[in-house]
Design a protein around this nucleic acid. Sequence first.
DNA 1: AATGCGGGGAC
DNA 2: GTCCCAGCATT
Length: 395
Amino acid sequence: MLKDYDLKQLVSPLLQWFLNHARVLPWREKPTPYRVWVSEIMLQQTRVEAVKPYFERFTTALPDAKALAVCPEDELLKLWEGLGYYNRVRNMQKAAVEVVENYGGQLPADYEKLLKLKGIGHYTAGAVASIAYGIPVPAVDGNVLRVLTRVSADDTDIMKQSFRNEMEKLLEKLMHGADGRNEKNVFPWMEDADDLRAKVYHQNLAGAFNQALMELGATICVPNGAPLCTECPWKDFCEAKKQELIGQIPVKSKAKPRKIEKKTVLILRDDEKVAIRKRPAKGLLAGLYELPNVEGNMGQEEVLSMVKEMGYAPIRIQPLGEAKHIFSHIEWHMTGYAVRVEEPEMHPQVQCEKNRADGLLFVEAEDAKEKYAIPSAFAAYAKYMNILLGNEKKA
DNA sequence: AATGCGGGGAC
DNA sequence: GTCCCAGCATT
């Protein structure tokens, strides 16, 4: 059990290791509260490598909370396109509005206040408070749970909320003792605390400690495959290694099997424009744009009659084959068709922004790519948006 | 406590 | 194929 394990012996070796092995990451160079916040939201359930290309672009386009607060939704979603979990960015914008209204545009240097903001839970509040402000509070994520259960050979199910709560309490006590969250009093029991503080990133011991735990999990005590125990600063302290339990810890209850949904996806276009459609404001891929699609896998004839039923005059149809997209809880098994139709009577752009009754928006293929956020689920078919049908060859 | 919510990399 | 990632909101 972790609560019986001596965590104090781990802190100094961990920080010493982190001094030499911390990765250079964009958000570590200039850890302003806003940049730390953006990075932490992006990093929720998302790997560092996936976040990198998004972070610079996002913070350049929206350099502070005020800019984020007033950004139009389509632009915001476009900046987030492909990152997934799109409610993260919508919640972050709601929080930005609150930060501008209540905190003068600056994130509060207060764990409890951070926790009240939309999209900020225990982990993110702890990460921002410690990394941006040096406040000694823990930031317990999947990495932390893995390295701590392994080092102590704890076989508790890490999916249990109660266990996560215990870890936070334990770490909080470790970080600031019993005298509150004083940023000048991190690891008060540690003899070389001040010496280490002088050496770590931005002289921030609390932030360095939390990041070091996660760094250890991300680069040494890895989730997939064999951990690199020979390079681990805790190799002499690790109970899982001693007892050869590395492969069995952490214990994690299994996820439910995914639901399979069949879909027919259309590249519906006339001689110049292609149809897209805005998804509902709630639920899967909320507010993003998609290729028109219906439930079920249809054949050519079925698609043609449906397109006619929708009020279009098909000229030619071309099958685009099958594609699969896997979400965390759903699988889309899709079949796609390119259907060329005669020009609809009313293009919404021409008709004073009035959408067609079927909700389809006819746009230039270039615009569909550049201006509208279309999730990766449609990538297998979206790539055909700018090819022409019939005898005309690829553009 | 359980469920919904993306996408991709490692094995 | 399986696992899981610097999780959070809602019910």
